[in-house]
Amino acid sequence: MKKNKSLEKNSQSENFISVKEFFNDGKQLLELTLISSSSGFENNITHSKIQKPGLALAGYVDFIHPGRVQILGKLEINYLKELSSKERLKVLSKIFQKKMCCIVLTSNLDPPDELLNLANESKVPVFKSSLATSQCIERITNFLSKKLAPKKKIHGVLLDIYGQGVLIIGESGIGKSECAVELIVRGHRLVSDDVIEIYRTSEGRIVGSAPPLSRYHLEVRGLGIINIKELFGISSITLEKEIDLIIELKKWEPDVEFDRLGYESMRKYELLGVDLPLIVIPVGPGRNLAVLTEIAVRKHLLDRKVYPASKEITKELENLLKSNQVMNDRDDE
């Protein structure tokens, strides 16, 4: 995955993958085989949405997008096969004058010879997929939107606590990993310690997972690197989790004021352009961080779920009082 550096902080950052990466990582899922030469593997795919050439086959090629995977299904191939070889060559030549990243033929269809020749000449790789067109389009779109999503590595610990994805951040040495170990002992699950790979989904959620090398592992000073999956079993880990809440552990300093009433629970922390709720917990002697973290998550759940309910009941009561008032007024008349 390459990233456009100058736009790194911009949520609209433009990502791309090479056709080579598309083929290597996607060939199993998308059931792809390469049927052209591999020249053009360095072409870039920039969009997760595919394109069906449609009218381009009739000569209207203006809207062919170089960064989108071109899909040819039964309809397109049959149409091409019905043309005379002279017409076919004319139509295809016009299309291949446009830049394209790659072409995928669905349903195991065989391309006309003219298409393959032109593709090799213009360095456009052609793949064949055994999937039906609709299924192929769906899988390519999902695969690419994940690949092209804005992503980043961050420092912290990601856990699943009461089903919520909780990211614990704070300076190194503050006790994030120790807090995580205790949470795991209490039955919660580890996603990743230290380095977390995050990406933004098309729905604007942030999903975190562990880099393959450090997956299942956690470092505790004095004990070294421990394997959580081996020590605590399969139920103590989870591979991927959407982040719902961020907890920052902060050194307790006498001159820093902390939230005493809980009014500030609406603080935000930005990740890849998405604002997530942040709770800051001061670290000090006699404070059990794991328990405090658990309570913070419970509080977050409560704030999110019960608060609207209480609002609703208040509203209902107000309405009821109002209508009773009206009835009473009528009785008085």
Binding site: K5, K152, K153, H155, E219
Partner: peptide, 28 residues
């Protein structure tokens, strides 16, 4: 860890905490 300063290591676009071992290992 002997120093008070924050230490970061950056490789390509990845930035990791230089005071924590797992991070450094994932840089490979």
């Amino acid at each position: 860890n002997r120093f008070k300063s924050k230490v970061r290591i950056i490789k390509n676009d990845d930035e990791i905490d230089g005071k924590s071992i797992l991070g450094i290992l994932t840089l490979a």
